[in-house]
Simulated assay, not measured.
Amino acid sequence: MVAQPEVSAWRSRVPGVVEVFHAHFTEYAYPMHVHEAWTLLIVDDGAVRYDLDRHEHGTPHDTVSLLPPHVPHNGSPVTTHGFRKRVVYLDGTHLGEDLIGSAVDGPDLRDPVLRLRVGQLHTALGHPGDELEAESRLTLIAERLRTHLRPSAPAATPRDSPTLARTPRDSPTLARTLRELLDEHLTQGIGLDEAARLVHAHPAHLVRAFSGAYGIAPHQYLMSRRVERARRLLLEGRPPGEVASATGFYDQSHLTRHFKKFVGVTPGRYARSRQA
């Protein structure tokens, strides 16, 4: 019996992300079609054969494929087992039309670091409330993609700014300013784009400056501060659902996942421990 397709698709609140699409197909083959958005594709199981601009390509599991907008392509499984893929569709926020030609010439990128980061991006996109992490990871992914597609030309992109060329002396000041912003917006949160606009820095440079100064990514810092505040409220006897809302988590399950990551136990068990 032929396995039924498995499909999951959703919109994300992360700027630049048009759609997130996960699928498992065994026999289905895509006809020639185009997308208005960039297609950032990884295959977790099996492989896909596709034609792009009348040239045949393939996507083994260690490859990241970037298909440009407006260029026709198709897709079909290589084996009878089909393929399992994860796709992020991106608008022109991170990648400009000037990169389309390079992407047509070389859409499949063998880069283990890039492959790992794209997988981490999908994990973050699958958890509501982790938008800052997803935004940070996407910023670094886009920077690496531009390096692949334009290795010798540091020309401006839609998100580039002169502040990208800041000297290392600027990094501690940027890191401290971002930390202050994260502290000020601990509950409501702040997007990476908004923070970069407020401090007049490129988002990728801002993430690198913060991580270099404090040894922790901005999203990790924000979540650790929220968990710290949640601990205090739990010890005051407030229920986990109320604590989740009061500390900026999307919901109680979001609090539980991060609380267990940082503390080692669930919020409920932590709260019960105070009675002992």
Rank of each mutant, 00 (worst) to 15 (best):
H33A: 02
G92F: 13
R117T: 01
Y214S: 13
Y28G: 06
P162S: 08
H219D: 10
A201Q: 12
T147A: 14
W38H: 05
H122E: 05
E242F: 03
W10Y: 13
S253D: 13
L125E: 02
V104F: 01
A23K: 05
L52E: 05
R274I: 15
T139A: 14
S152I: 08
V18R: 13
L99G: 01
T163G: 05
L140H: 08
L149M: 11
P15D: 02
E242L: 02
R226E: 00
V78L: 10
V20D: 01
L181M: 12
T80Y: 06
P168A: 04
D98T: 06
A195P: 10
Y28R: 15
P151Y: 05
G92M: 08
D160I: 11
I100Q: 06
E36D: 09
H94R: 11
D251Q: 10
H70N: 03
M32Q: 14
F249L: 04
T79Y: 11
L140I: 00
L255V: 08
H73D: 00
L206E: 11
R179A: 12
A230H: 03
T167F: 15
D53K: 02
I100V: 14
R272L: 15
T80E: 09
I100D: 06
R272G: 15
R159N: 12
R272A: 14
Y30Q: 09
L40W: 01
R146T: 11
V118S: 04
F259L: 02
L233V: 02
P172H: 09
R238G: 00
A134K: 08
V7Y: 11
T79H: 04
L52I: 05
